[in-house]
Simulated assay, not measured.
Amino acid sequence: MNQAAATRADEKMILAGDIGGTNTRFGLFRHECDRPESVATEIYGSSSLSSLEEGIERFLQEHPARISAACFGVAGPVIKGVCHVTNLPWVVSEARIRERFAFEQATLVNDLLAIAHAIEILTADDLMVLQAAEGDPDGNVAILAPGTGLGVGFLFNIQGAMHPVASQGGHVDFAPTTDLEISLLQTLRKKFARVSLERVASGAGMLEIYRTLRATRQDQGSCGDAIDVSDTSSPQEITRRAVEYGDPLCVETVRLFLRIIGSAAGNLILMSMATKGLYLAGGVLPHVAPLIREGLLLEALLDKGRFRDLLLRVPVYVILNQQTGLLGAARLAVKSLNLRR
């Protein structure tokens, strides 16, 4: 038995999970400090698992440990300890997990609630600064997370204490602001009964943008070397070709995607008075950092007429640390232990 495994056998650990439509992450953490210390992590393709229970069992077989508490952030609404995962055919039950694995403490939360619990312990190394601003210490915080789907969360400032709140804000209506976005909406209305923001501001949404732009270029006879969008890895291929090769159609796709994200982020700040800060999370944006730095996303965020000056005073960050959801879930698990003492 190696030293790390021996350490896990001798002490109780926190088990954290971050379950998304594409990836399912698990981690073991020590919980002596405010920022839980990562001991072991794994990433599994969500489609390779039949259930969250299968993922937990697989992870604990690879990393045996005594678990003091567990917490899992899941991409979907959690109601009375149960979640029908939005972009997976899973029904996850907090009680069922607790019973199957004999965990003394197990908590199921929305994935954005988990991320919100990690915001206060992120460091400069975890973030890319899009807009350096002082912010309002008495304001709220908003989180927008484009990944397989689109997550939205908040930290509301109540008498100086920050209170994380989950939401299903990614499923509000898509509100186009340019002629190109109106054309995109008109195209998608032929395909979907309702076009939510998630339909365009997510990995799947990036595919829809690409398809729409490609069809336009084909009509104009200027499509070029188009990607096969039946491939489920196509969002990653689009971002790779945009960043590494400057593929014109992929670059145009990502730029439109970033404008839509920016506009939605500005709306989110205004709706929640998130004057303390906006955090952009999720798995998509770190891969397109060079295009983000062009400024299209930030300019779309600021393009709110009379409220531009207010938005200029809000710090804006991209979260680069892809373990943020795990950190937040681990922190929640620690808090659940402390409440029992």
Rank of each mutant, 00 (worst) to 15 (best):
R199A: 12
K191L: 02
G135C: 11
A145G: 15
G135K: 12
L188V: 04
L197H: 05
V172C: 13
S196Q: 10
F154D: 06
G135M: 05
D179V: 03
F156K: 04
D179G: 09
A161V: 14
S196Y: 03
P137C: 13
D173H: 13
I158P: 00
D173C: 08
M162A: 14
D179Y: 02
I158N: 08
L144S: 01
G153P: 11
P176D: 03
A175W: 02
I182E: 15
L197A: 15
A166Q: 05
G151E: 05
L180T: 14
F156H: 13
H163W: 04
G203A: 09
I182T: 13
A161I: 04
V195Y: 08
D179S: 13
G149N: 05
G151L: 06
T178C: 12
Q186P: 00
V152I: 06
G169R: 09
L184S: 04
S202E: 03
P164S: 07
Q168P: 00
V141K: 01
A161W: 00
L180W: 00
A166S: 15
T177Q: 11
S202A: 11
D173I: 01
A161P: 00
V195H: 07
V152N: 10
P146G: 08
F154T: 03
G170I: 03
L188F: 05
N140G: 04
L197E: 05
A175S: 12
G170D: 01
I158G: 00
P137V: 12
E181W: 03
A142Q: 04
F174V: 00
A175E: 11
A161E: 14
Q159F: 10
R199G: 00
A204G: 13
V195I: 04
H163M: 13
